[in-house]
Nucleic acid binder design. Structure first.
Length: 310
DNA sequence: CAGACTGCGCATCTCT
DNA sequence: AGAGATGCGC
DNA sequence: GTCTG
């Protein structure tokens, strides 16, 4: 549920560059509605963040994958003047700033934010005064706006993990619960809590739709004591180990691993690992019975969750 | 120089 | 009402 | 915006 990422963390020698690149990324996504530029800027910020040397010039930066002419020039401008004219202009654009603010509410994207601003709704407070114009999702986003932007301490997640497991065990002891995400990677705090729940009867394929639906419903009902609001309810079921791998991340690690899978003639997503035929058409999913299995199949050295912080 | 950049489930809107 | 499209989040 | 074919 976390909307913000931060390549400008710990010992990052290029954090000032990362900051303005991330700001440009947000602008492209929220205001220009160009998610590809957004990703391009984020990739550039990410590669600079993991670079072990302080970048001294645009030319030097340009050697890195993901940084081309335009960002190279921006780095030079920032090095010379300490700021970016493009960013200064954006700061002065009140509508752009308003759109950026509104998209921080979960459920409000670039299109809805622009529409709100067009209709004079330009702040979180404005949203709170127009609850009747919000979807269920957006209402929750506004109600917990401040909370959603806070990080969750590991200790707190451990508490919730305990309560969740206890609750679910009482419902049906065969349920298993795994908290994935950055928590599983050992981080001290997380932006959200990704809980993956499975039940043996869901693994026995098909012919169980009714039972499955009943289980899901009883699960959701049981969670009512712990969960205060429900944004959406689905009945999706996926291959457990691929899901646990995917939801543990990090996203950069996932991208690396998927690329490696392709090299080895497989396609990997959150549902399954499938061989890619010569025609390029994916075949039937490979039988997986552990996370390690996935690594084995694509001949990729096993990494513990803690080693997946990339 | 043109096209890719993951793509899918859910909620909600729009069309018929 | 039902099919399809759109916005959104991940 | 950057990379690839």
């Amino acid at each position: 549920m976390s909307k913000r990422k931060n390549p400008s963390d710990d010992n990052n020698l290029n954090s000032d560059f990362c900051d303005f690149l991330m700001e440009l990324a947000e602008y492209e996504k929220n205001v220009s509605r160009n998610v590809h530029k957004y990703n391009a800027y984020r990739k550039a910020a990410s590669v600079l963040a993991t670079h072990s040397k302080r970048i001294e010039s645009g030319d030097e930066a340009k050697k890195l994958s993901g940084i081309g002419d335009k960002i190279s020039k921006k780095i030079d401008e920032f090095l010379q003047t300490g700021k970016l004219r493009k960013l200064e202009n954006i700061h002065q654009d009140e509508d752009a700033q308003a759109i950026n603010t509104l998209t921080r509410v979960t459920g409000v994207g670039p299109v809805k934010a622009a529409e709100f601003v067009r209709n004079g709704i330009k702040s979180i407070e404005d949203l709170r005064n127009n609850i009747d114009k919000l979807t269920h999702h957006q209402t929750i986003g506004v109600r917990y706006f401040e909370d959603f932007e806070k990080k969750i301490p590991r200790k707190e997640i451990q508490d919730i993990e305990g309560k969740l497991k206890n609750l679910i065990k009482n419902l049906d002891p065969e349920f298993t619960v795994t908290i994935c995400g950055s928590y599983r990677r050992g981080k001290r705090e997380s932006g959200d809590i990704d809980a993956l729940v499975t039940h043996p009867s869901l693994k026995i394929n098909e012919k169980k739709k009714k039972h499955e639906a009943k289980l899901m419903k009883s699960l959701v009902d049981a969670l009512k004591g712990l969960v205060t609001d429900v944004i959406s309810i689905g009945d999706t079921k996926f291959m457990y180990y691929c899901a646990i791998l995917y939801f543990t991340g990090s996203d950069v690690f996932n991208k690396t691993m998927r690329a490696h899978a392709l090299d080895k003639g497989f396609t990997l997503n959150e549902y399954a690992l499938r061989p890619v035929g010569v025609t390029g058409v994916p075949g039937e999913p490979v039988q997986i019975s552990s996370e390690e299995d996935v690594f084995d199949y694509i001949d990729y050295p096993y990494k513990t969750p803690e080693e997946r912080n990339m």
